[in-house]
Design a protein around this nucleic acid. Sequence first.
DNA 1: TTCATTTATCGTATATTTACGATGAACGAT
DNA 2: ATCGTTCATCGTAAATATACGATAAATGAA
Lengths: 105, 105
Amino acid sequence: MPVSKKDDFTKDEVWLADICKSLSHPARIKILKILTELNSCVVGSIVDQLPLAQATVSQHLKELKRVGLIEGEIDGPRVCYCVDNKLLIKAKKQLDKLFTTIGCC
Amino acid sequence: MPVSKKDDFTKDEVWLADICKSLSHPARIKILKILTELNSCVVGSIVDQLPLAQATVSQHLKELKRVGLIEGEIDGPRVCYCVDNKLLIKAKKQLDKLFTTIGCC
DNA sequence: TTCATTTATCGTATATTTACGATGAACGAT
DNA sequence: ATCGTTCATCGTAAATATACGATAAATGAA
């Protein structure tokens, strides 16, 4: 008879899956690049470089903010976003760990 | 999704987003680990280690197969899956490139 | 105050994902 | 040939994701 399936997933697995989910749309990958390339990280500048409506970009920003990859700072009537390098490093570390675990590199 | 605008992004961005999507569920991350840990990579063994029904595991395997991260080989009435190391390396390379681009590590 | 600008959120439509039981197809064994 | 095993696929339901226009909230400027 089958073994009992009590095993849940580990915290690391859930966390990394969530990070990957936030990177699972090209617009969000591009947003991270834009935030790095531009001096300014104002929302309007990001919208200008994406083939998406402002409301849609706002949703993508929200998703990146949800997992902590970016942070928003209010700047007058604008909002200035930037990448959280600390979390980026953590994400890379976890990804490297996964790739090592599954026998790559 | 109404209309997909993924064609407006670069090939690399779309490809990497797709890889991340395939890693965006803890079950699929765990499947990759199981395939590495076990000698056998038969579907039944994978199902035994996941808190999910066989049909659901089969769907997750399909998603990993879709992006090429795993391959299935028919072995009598069974199917033996294994990780495609070549694609794994490509994925890691693209991820490293992204992290470098956005100023991490 | 009033107006224009900026961004988040609401409402909504549709697509996709996730999950499961049921079923079908392929195979080895009896 | 029939049976049991193994796995993929079908059918389906609920949740989530994606996209947009419209609107609200907040701010600075006139």
